[in-house]
Amino acid sequence: MPKKERKRLQVVISEEQDALLTRTAYELSSPERLISKSEVVRLAIEKIAREMGEDIHLDELRSLLDDENVSEDA
């Protein structure tokens, strides 16, 4: 069976954001299935895209981005 082609994305995140990712992955994991931080990011992308399709909380999401002082310096 051929492997799925995947794109790789590299982003710079703060230590606090990394801690949130780690904690979320830990909380979503179970003894039968460990969840990676990458899986958490993919889940978040899908959730945000779904909410955008439903016009839910877009202003709230934009304000979170503004509050985080997202830096484009990479």
Rank of each mutant, 00 (worst) to 15 (best):
K47H: 11
I35L: 04
P2E: 13
S14G: 01
I48M: 10
E60D: 08
R33G: 07
D66M: 07
D73N: 06
E16Q: 08
D67Y: 02
M1E: 11
E32T: 11
E39N: 06
V41P: 02
L20Q: 07
A44T: 11
K4Q: 10
P2T: 13
D18C: 01
S63F: 05
M52D: 09
I45D: 01
S71D: 14
E68K: 03
T24D: 00
E72G: 03
A74E: 15
G53C: 04
R62K: 09
K37G: 02
I56G: 01
D73H: 02
V11W: 00
S38H: 02
I35A: 06
P31H: 05
N69M: 08
L34E: 12
I48R: 11
A44E: 00
E15S: 05
M1H: 09
D18E: 07
M52N: 05
L43Y: 05
S29R: 01
K7I: 09
L21C: 03
E72H: 04
V41R: 10
V40I: 06
V70G: 01
L43V: 02
G53K: 10
R50N: 14
S36M: 03
V11D: 04
R50L: 14
L61Q: 12
K4I: 07
R6G: 00
I45G: 06
M52H: 09
I45L: 15
E16F: 03
E46D: 13
L20F: 10
S71N: 08
L58Y: 08
R8K: 13
Y26M: 08
E54Q: 15
Q10K: 11
I56V: 15
E54C: 03
D67E: 13
D59T: 11
I56L: 14
R62W: 04
V70F: 07
V11F: 06
R33S: 11
K37Y: 05
E27S: 07
E72P: 00
D59Q: 12
E46V: 12
D18F: 03
I45H: 05
E46T: 13
N69F: 05
Q10W: 04
V11E: 01
R23I: 10
P31F: 05
R42V: 10
H57I: 07
S63A: 13
R42N: 14
A49H: 09
K37F: 08
I35P: 05
P31G: 06
R6Q: 09
V12Y: 02
E39V: 02
H57Q: 10
A74I: 08
S14L: 01
V41I: 15
D18G: 04
L58F: 06
R62D: 10
K47T: 15
